[in-house]
């Protein structure tokens, strides 16, 4: 697991997604408690359990690498073949940057879409393509990418991560460029951050971020009292719910 966290810190900005799948019985609170106390700087996605259709493993630790196009590239012990894993990851990150596909047009669209996250640019490139299977495929990828990023704005709010949600919304508005129908959808979402309820959430999240930063720096002692103080002013907010989950995890004994 430390190797996954290290990979994530080094390569997430280049496009690597790291997922930790827990393989034994533990509640979400226990997992959160373990991560807070043992790996407070973890930024990998963490799931309490999942069936992943890669080769069955007889034990842990175990890891699998899936490529940009959903193909399984490697499966085995995470520390077993570090050079090979690194080479495979590097090759995939190069695909993210340069694009992939059988034609130069497809590579150009994917470089724009996944390498630069320039959704407006990708839309213009796709619009210029001749009708056919490739155009349909790339259009589907673009639509899915936009829908996923738009959905994440709301999801981050539901999770009490309003600062992240606002940042994602600003980024998406920039990324869609001048594509009018998307601007018309995202612009109101960004404006909604100025209403009183959103401002209350953002203010609470700024306070919570300071507490989270202290936890990441392994300064745990003052965190419970700081969260309790925050909860008094952030009642009935999504950030308050997140703060409460954090407090519960801090008070949960290690499994």
């Amino acid at each position: 697991m430390p190797s996954a966290i290290k990979h994530d810190h080094e390569l997430s900005s280049k496009g690597l997604v790291s997922v930790l799948v827990h393989s034994q019985q533990a509640t979400p609170d226990e997992l959160q408690a373990f991560l807070l106390k043992t790996f407070p700087d973890n930024d990998c996605f963490v799931t309490p359990s999942a069936f992943v259709p890669t080769p069955a493993s007889t034990g842990i630790p175990h890891a699998a690498l899936i490529g940009v196009d959903g193909k399984l590239l490697w499966d085995g012990h995470p520390l077993g073949e570090p050079k090979k894993i690194q080479e495979l990851i590097d090759a995939e990150l190069l695909k993210v940057k340069k694009g992939w596909g059988e034609t130069s047009e497809a590579r150009k669209v994917r470089a724009s879409l996944y390498g630069k996250n320039d959704l407006g640019g990708a839309a213009a490139l796709i619009a210029a393509l001749a009708d056919g299977e490739e155009k349909t495929t790339l259009q589907g990828e673009l639509d899915r990418r936009y829908a996923t990023q738009k959905k994440s704005i709301t999801e981050l709010q539901n999770q009490g991560r309003w600062l992240d949600s606002q940042a994602a919304c600003k980024a998406l508005l920039k990324d869609v460029g001048t594509k009018a129908e998307w601007v018309a959808e995202v612009q109101p979402m960004l404006l909604a951050f100025d209403n009183p309820e959103s401002k209350a959430e953002l203010a609470a999240d700024k306070k919570l971020e300071k507490i989270v930063k202290a936890l990441r720096d392994k300064k745990r002692d003052g965190a419970p009292k700081a969260i309790e103080a925050l909860l008094k002013s952030a009642a009935n907010t999504k950030v308050g719910e997140r703060a409460q989950r954090l407090l519960t995890a801090l008070n949960t004994p290690l499994p």
Binding site: V17, V21, D69, E92, L156
Partner: peptide
């Protein structure tokens, strides 16, 4: 996810390489 952003299925991550680490606490 404990800390997700709305993406949950494999297709949501299309375009990004994914390193999945199976681990345990106990």
């Amino acid at each position: 996810f404990l800390n997700g952003d709305g993406r949950s299925s494999l297709s949501d991550f299309y375009g990004s390489p994914i390193m999945i680490d199976f681990w345990g606490v106990h």
